[in-house]
Every structure is written in structure tokens, then in C-alpha cells.
């Protein structure tokens, strides 16, 4: 399979890793670099030991850009917290299945809002825990790091998990977008794309590295991804 035959890889820079004092400028650069969406980590300090971005930042992004948002909820009581952010039609909304007793219901609620519903699995969590939910999700996001902090060590096990998931979804005739989140960069992008991921969430390593600009990082990543599989 060559680059043209592979599904086009999408980039979702994680705004948490940008300079939070210049959100407006950053968004302009991301638009110029033609990224596909903006990834936003929402942590409550209870499910994960950190808080990073809140409702004000999400609302500001909705005001200043037409790039779609990819909202990743890392919090307890996701039903309540997700409502606080009032997700809009077309926005991706993902949460961790173990944070709610009723993941199936929450996925339905997201679909009613015309969001793109998805689930997230952390390293160490088996695919089987979401087996029954596959027909109800449009996105699966695999964490390549333990959620909570940027710049953590990339867990290679997520590549095998991705391959296994692709088979699982194919055998059920399902077309589910597969995202990867955590320390994705030039060093591992090729193997990530070859494992079947079609959305790369980019932090410091893949987009906001201080020594290069956003534009340069994204074009480097794009070159690596399009040569994958050759």
C-alpha cells in the first residue's frame, strides 16, 4: 500500500501544549498550517491529577476559529461536565468508559447533540471493555501515554492495540476513526500511521516544539505520514 492508498491522516494539535498566553496567534498559525481540528484536554483534577483547560477557552476557540474541536474529557461524572461545555454539532467528544456507569447512554446523548461520539482507552486497558459499544462510537482514541501530563513516555503497546482494533472493527463491518494521543512526533509517526491510526493528536513533540514553528512542524509531520507504508 502506498501513501495515496492510505486513508488521509488528520492532525489534531493539542492546544494544552501551546502558549496559553497567545491563544489567538496560535490559532491563526494552526489555520495557516491547515490542521484538521483542535484537540482540547479537559481534566477535573479528580479523575486525573491535573486541570488544564476550561469552558472559557473552549468558548473562545468556538468564537475565533471554524476548525472543528475535538473535546477529550478526562473527568469524573462526565455527563455533568460535558453539559457544562455544551458540545456543538460536528464536534468530536470523547470520554473514558470507566468514568461512567452508563457509557452507552452518554454516547446516545452525544449523538442526539449531533456530536461525533467516541471513547478513549488508556495504556493497560483492553479493547474488550468497549466491545459492546463499538456500534455506537465513531471515534476510538488510544492513549499512548498515561493521561494527565504532556511530554510523557510513548507506550509502544498502543500500536499492537491499534492493529487488533482495526481487525475487530473490520470483522463487524464498522468504520471507526482511530486517534492516537500522547508524545506523537517525527520519531514515531511512520509506525503510527502504518498501525492504522488516521488522526494524530500532536503536542510538544509533533507540533509545539519550541525550537521550530508550528508551520514547519506540521509540514515535517505531513511529509513523514504521507511516505508511510511505502
Amino acid at each position: 500500500m502506498n501513501g495515496d492508498e492510505m486513508m488521509k491522516v488528520k492532525f489534531a494539535p493539542s492546544i494544552m501544549c501551546s502558549d496559553l498566553s497567545q491563544l489567538g496567534l496560535t490559532v491563526k498559525e494552526l489555520e495557516k498550517a491547515n490542521v484538521d481540528m483542535i484537540h482540547i484536554d479537559i481534566m477535573d483534577g479528580q479523575y486525573v491529577p491535573n486541570i488544564v483547560l476550561g469552558t472559557d477557552i473552549v468558548n473562545a476557540l468556538r468564537d475565533i476559529t471554524s476548525l472543528p474541536l475535538d473535546l477529550h474529557f478526562m473527568c469524573k461524572e462526565p455527563e455533568r461536565i460535558i453539559s457544562m461545555f455544551d458540545p456543538k454539532p460536528g464536534e468530536r467528544v470523547t470520554f473514558h468508559p470507566e468514568t461512567t456507569y452508563h457509557p452507552h447512554r452518554l454516547l446516545q446523548q452525544l449523538k442526539q447533540r449531533q456530536c461525533i461520539p467516541g471513547l478513549v482507552l488508556s495504556p493497560g486497558q483492553p479493547l474488550e471493555i468497549i466491545e459492546e459499544l463499538l456500534p455506537d462510537i465513531e471515534v476510538l482514541q488510544l492513549m499512548a501515554v498515561h493521561p494527565g501530563f504532556p511530554g510523557a513516555k510513548f507506550q509502544w503497546s498502543c500500536l499492537e492495540k491499534a492493529k487488533k482494533f482495526k481487525k475487530m472493527a473490520e470483522s463487524q463491518g464498522l468504520n471507526i476513526s482511530l486517534s492516537i494521543d500522547g508524545s506523537v512526533g517525527p520519531d514515531n509517526a511512520r509506525m503510527i500511521v502504518e498501525a492504522g491510526f488516521d488522526v494524530l493528536i500532536l503536542g510538544y513533540a509533533g507540533c509545539f516544539a519550541a525550537e521550530y514553528g508550528i508551520g514547519e512542524m506540521i509540514s515535517r509531520m505531513r511529509a513523514i505520514c504521507s511516505s508511510a507504508g511505502n
Partner: peptide, 21 residues
């Protein structure tokens, strides 16, 4: 203001923001 969405019905920013400020 650091809000966790549990003690108050809103969720805000955290240590990264405080560092930058």
C-alpha cells in the same frame, strides 16, 4: 480561579496557566 467542575458548576484552567501567568 481553579475550578474542577465538581465543587463548582464550572471547570477552568490549571497549573500550566498559572505557570505562564
Amino acid at each position: 480561579d481553579i475550578m474542577d467542575g465538581h465543587f463548582v458548576p464550572n471547570l477552568t484552567i490549571g497549573p500550566l496557566y498559572v505557570d505562564r501567568v
